Amino acid sequence: MGIISRGKALWAKIYYQKRIKMKAAACGEKLYVGGKSFVNSNTYLGYGVCFNGMSILGQGKVEIGNYFHSGTECQIITSFHNYEGEQIPYDNSYITKNVKIGDCVWLGNNVIILGGCVIGEGAIIQAGSVVCKDIPAYSIAGGHPAIPFKTRDKEHYLKMKKEERFH
């Protein structure tokens, strides 16, 4: 990577980080933004959040816990067109649902989370998945829709958390 390319990449990281801090309702310390990322004004970010490319769209409340990590091109969508309104296929009104994500959640690349979902602490969402239902704590989930297919070793996870071994 040339000097100009590195300079542009660094500028972009600083730009998106500053934008997120200004736009979010709350933002914990040690925010890292490694790729093009956007939040809504109803976003609450914990400590040590890491976005490598996140778009938070819609008007719903989004709460993201501490030590969250996203892959590239991830989306959280909290507002949807009303398909049961006065017109078809949809009208100009919206249905808004909140999203809550626990501590130490990791999203792979290209994950989409739809409004109304809760993702429990320590969960991992496989790349390319669409989350449209709650994902329990410590679950590893994937697919369309994302479903848990494995559970993390909870004792190991809690030991690492107690020792504050965060990435």
Results as ranks from 00 to 15, higher is better:
81 H>W: 12
137 A>L: 00
140 I>D: 07
70 S>W: 09
75 Q>N: 13
13 K>W: 05
9 A>Y: 02
24 A>V: 02
111 V>N: 07
6 R>H: 08
74 C>H: 08
10 L>I: 10
68 F>E: 05
109 N>W: 13
124 I>N: 01
104 C>M: 09
91 D>F: 12
91 D>G: 14
73 E>N: 15
38 F>L: 10
39 V>C: 05
48 G>W: 09
12 A>N: 12
92 N>M: 04
46 G>H: 01
140 I>E: 08
149 F>I: 04
125 I>W: 03
79 S>W: 05
162 K>Y: 09
120 G>D: 10
132 C>W: 04
59 Q>H: 11
12 A>K: 11
164 E>S: 14
110 N>I: 01
36 K>A: 04
59 Q>F: 10
67 Y>V: 02
98 N>H: 14
62 V>W: 00
67 Y>W: 14
147 I>K: 09
31 L>T: 10
89 P>H: 13
46 G>P: 10
104 C>G: 03
135 I>T: 07
93 S>K: 15
29 E>H: 12
112 I>W: 00
125 I>N: 00
83 Y>W: 13
80 F>C: 01
58 G>V: 05
45 L>D: 04
7 G>F: 15
128 G>R: 06
133 K>G: 04
57 L>W: 04
16 Y>K: 00
19 R>G: 02
23 K>E: 06
114 L>K: 04
125 I>R: 02
55 S>K: 08
72 T>N: 09
70 S>R: 06
18 K>T: 14
11 W>H: 12
64 I>L: 04
165 R>P: 04
86 E>V: 14
102 G>N: 07
122 G>E: 01
12 A>G: 03
16 Y>D: 03
139 S>G: 08
150 K>H: 09
35 G>S: 00
96 T>L: 12
11 W>L: 15
21 K>H: 10
166 F>N: 07
117 C>R: 03
117 C>E: 04
31 L>Q: 02
131 V>T: 03
32 Y>G: 07
65 G>W: 02
145 P>E: 12
90 Y>A: 10
123 A>M: 00
77 I>T: 00
102 G>V: 10
134 D>Q: 06
83 Y>C: 14
52 N>G: 09
140 I>L: 06
126 Q>I: 06
75 Q>R: 14
85 G>H: 12
95 I>F: 05
134 D>T: 07
101 I>R: 08
51 F>I: 03
113 I>Y: 05
32 Y>V: 05
100 K>M: 14
122 G>A: 09
79 S>K: 05
53 G>V: 08
94 Y>P: 00
59 Q>V: 00
165 R>Q: 13
12 A>L: 15
6 R>A: 13
163 E>H: 10
132 C>Y: 07
89 P>V: 13
91 D>Q: 14
34 G>W: 13
132 C>A: 12
153 D>T: 02
114 L>N: 06
126 Q>A: 09
21 K>D: 04
72 T>Q: 11
69 H>K: 04
26 A>S: 15
15 Y>Q: 11
54 M>S: 08
74 C>S: 10
